[in-house]
Nucleic acid binder design. Structure first.
Length: 224
DNA sequence: TTCTGTTTAGATGGTG
DNA sequence: CACCATCTAAACAGAA
């Protein structure tokens, strides 16, 4: 498990641009370099991180700011999953709201964790994008039919954190059309079956595992 | 313009 | 050490 991040220390790192360098990037007058600049890497001085600032006097260290809320021990997929199990289906902004309401660590005006939430919604097959939201921007997100409960896998619960949770309702499951489920199975199968041609449907299996078998073995659900 | 959604890339920590 | 899961950052496109 990763243990970093928000609030631990700033990351003055910027991703290398995938674009070719522009004139501005090479221009000495550009201030873009400043974003990467850390004084403490150039000279031997201590640059305080973003954490609470401590006064030197009195002898007892007193934080100037109240202690920052501790990062909850849940991953983003776990947080999103719980929100969706509790509410059925939510827009992205409602997921933000659900998380920041329950976990002060995730401040409503912090863009960083929200980016991660969107990232997880996009890449995690646990989550399905449904119809457009009736009002507001974006779509309604819900749990995929084959989504399993993530938290029990780690033997933790939200109650461990003293978080007041509403009773779970039967999550609204977006039924996956069989073709989509089989696509996922085909992808899974492709990872264990060398030389399978997904496009031509070639049957040159080195290991005779069919997509249907993967569906069965992996517990994927088909909806006819 | 802002928000949403997708994608890519890199960092980090755990595990075998 | 390699691999994996996760987190974070960022670029970018499309919709409202």
């Amino acid at each position: 498990m990763s243990t970093v991040k928000i609030g631990d220390r700033p990351k003055w790192r910027r991703r290398k641009s995938s674009k070719s360098p522009t004139q501005d990037d090479n221009d000495c007058a550009s201030l873009a370099w400043l974003l990467n600049f850390r004084l403490d890497q150039i000279v031997n001085v201590k640059v305080p991180d973003d954490g609470p600032v401590f006064r030197k006097e009195p002898k007892v260290m007193v934080p100037d700011t109240p202690p920052a809320p501790r990062k909850p021990p849940y991953t983003y997929p776990e947080l999103i999953e719980r929100a969706l199990r509790e509410k059925g289906e939510l827009t992205v902004s409602a997921i933000y709201q659900w998380i920041s309401d329950r976990f002060p660590f995730y401040k409503a005006n912090d863009e960083r964790w929200k980016n991660s939430v969107r990232h997880n919604l996009s890449i995690n097959p646990h989550f399905r994008k449904g119809a457009r939201a009736p009002q507001g921007a974006g779509h309604l997100w819900s749990l995929a039919a084959n989504a399993i409960d993530l938290l029990p896998l780690r033997n933790i619960t939200f109650e461990d954190e003293g978080i007041a949770l509403e009773p779970l309702q039967e999550a609204r499951i977006i039924p996956c059309p069989k073709v989509i489920v089989l696509d996922e199975a085909a992808i899974a199968a492709a990872s264990i079956i060398p030389d399978q041609d997904l496009f031509t449907g070639s049957k040159m299996f080195l290991n005779p595992v069919s997509a249907e078998q993967v569906v069965r073995e992996c517990g994927l659900i088909t909806t006819d």
